[in-house]
Amino acid sequence: MSQQKTYWHLLQQKRMPTEYEIVTSKLLCYTGEGFTGKRFELDVPLKDWYRRYQEESPLVCSSWEKFRDPRETTYTKYTDLQRAKEIFVDGILGEIELTGYDAHLRPAWLHIFHRLVAPFRYPGHGFQMIASYIGQMAPSGRITIAAALQSADEMRRIQRIAYRIRQLQQIYPGFGADSKTLWETDSMWQPLREVVERLLIAYDWAESFVGLNLVLKPLVDELFMKYLSDAALREDDYLLGQIFYSLNEDCQWHRQWSESLVRMAIEDNVRNRDTIQGWINQWYPLAARAVHTFASLLEDTLEQMKTPRLKRTERAIDRYYRDYLRSMNLEVGS
């Protein structure tokens, strides 16, 4: 027998595959990337669902297998990376407990934390659900993996906020206890809740991806993980800023892999640009309204504080978002 150097589907590369290639290529069997050319072996309960929301998606590609996560995140690499980040965050949380840090936080800032950070667990969970949807419906294994890891990152964010709330409850009993009510009724949260709920039922897999990863998350993550984190620093809650800095690293990767997917899709078929742009135009107004509502409602509270008016933040986020889309030859919707 002749010596075979790699798996059948990687032989044509004529070089040794990377570890990422070995563990992530052609992992889905029903998409017609193998020899069967079939979809499902039998009439599974979700056959029509896949036909409608995956096969008949307006976003098309000659082979979704061409997508590569720029970070090449294998499972081992993921746990290694995230473990290091979690050790860093543990250090901060430990410091908070050791130094009695929470006793010195200003009431005005605690109010912001209570109204703006604690309820974030709910939309965060919505993000986790939508990422899980993208992953299960994605037409290639590598997209499935990226979305699954993103979903886990959202869980990380929720759990770190939960931990922080419990720390604050040790000093301020009942802190954050009304988060669910705020999420469901506080006028500040309603535009975001509306877009999360509507995006949960946007079932075309690619629309779900565009709505979450190209519209809602870049805007919301930037506001919360960057600008709110900057505000925390200025309000002397410098350690929350550190935690959010670490969580924001996850969000940056979400943008990076999304950008790779968009570039690949447009390179493969130029009409995909219009399809993606159409969805951006559709979802941007809802998402922008959600983000801008926080900005304007916060102005009154924050004016009394050291934090600069968030109008500027709003403009900065818009500028950042425009640049992000422009890097993919896309634009902010009208």
Partner: peptide, 22 residues
């Protein structure tokens, strides 16, 4: 550090009542 039992419940039950969709 807090034990998992102390804080994890705040991260596990996050369902809400939908208003904009059913």
């Amino acid at each position: 550090m807090l034990t998992r039992e102390e804080w994890l419940p705040l991260a596990r039950k996050l369902d809400w009542d939908y208003s904009y969709v059913r």
